[in-house]
Amino acid sequence: MQDMTWFTLASTVAAAVAIALGAMFPALAMGRAIVQALDALARQPEAEKSITRTLFIGLAMIESLAIYVLVVVLIILFRNPLLQYLVK
């Protein structure tokens, strides 16, 4: 039972840390991207359409990093493949 406790503790902590970091850094990157886009928009308001489109695509690309972290965290919490060595 001791093993199980440690396993649960470790996976919970790992999941929390992972999602914290995985939300933090993409947020910083998205902030930078939005700042640059607003800067470009202020300089050249007539290019609004293409800037908005490119910004959305870029944000989607950055956001998918956070989503990868979320998927990994969900696997750790709900379907951890390493659990079978312990339960056996």
């Binding site: 989607a60 956001e63 998918s64 989503i67 990868y68 979320l70 998927v71």
Partner: peptide, 13 residues
């Protein structure tokens, strides 16, 4: 793969 996981991850979450 990224296209599939992005849409799934967003809506699922």
């Amino acid at each position: 793969i990224a296209l599939a996981v992005r849409l799934f991850g967003n809506i699922f979450s």
